[in-house]
């Protein structure tokens, strides 16, 4: 039962592996940008990247 609960806990955050991977990639890129360019540039990368990752993942279902 514990393994089942652990699986379901992970499933709370990761349902579609590609979407989770895309989100992590966007965050890593935003973190790199934040360390190189101070200001709101990293925020733009984070927001635009998250929106794009979501839309691309949903559109990929269609194909």
């Amino acid at each position: 039962m514990l393994a089942g609960i652990a699986r379901e806990l992970i499933g709370l955050f990761v349902d579609d592996g590609m979407l989770a991977l895309a989100i992590i990639a966007v965050i890593v890129i935003a973190a790199i940008v934040a360390s190189l360019i101070p200001g709101a540039t990293a925020g733009v990368v984070l927001l635009a990247g998250s929106l794009f990752a979501l839309l691309a993942n949903v559109l990929a279902v269609q194909r």
Binding site: L12, D16, I23, S50
Partner: peptide, 22 residues
């Protein structure tokens, strides 16, 4: 923030696909 993005976008993806009838 990272956990929220994973959690929230997982809900959002499912809700979009359900709304679209997929």
């Amino acid at each position: 923030g990272v956990l929220l993005l994973l959690f929230g976008m997982r809900w959002l993806r499912k809700a979009i696909l359900r709304a679209a009838g997929v």
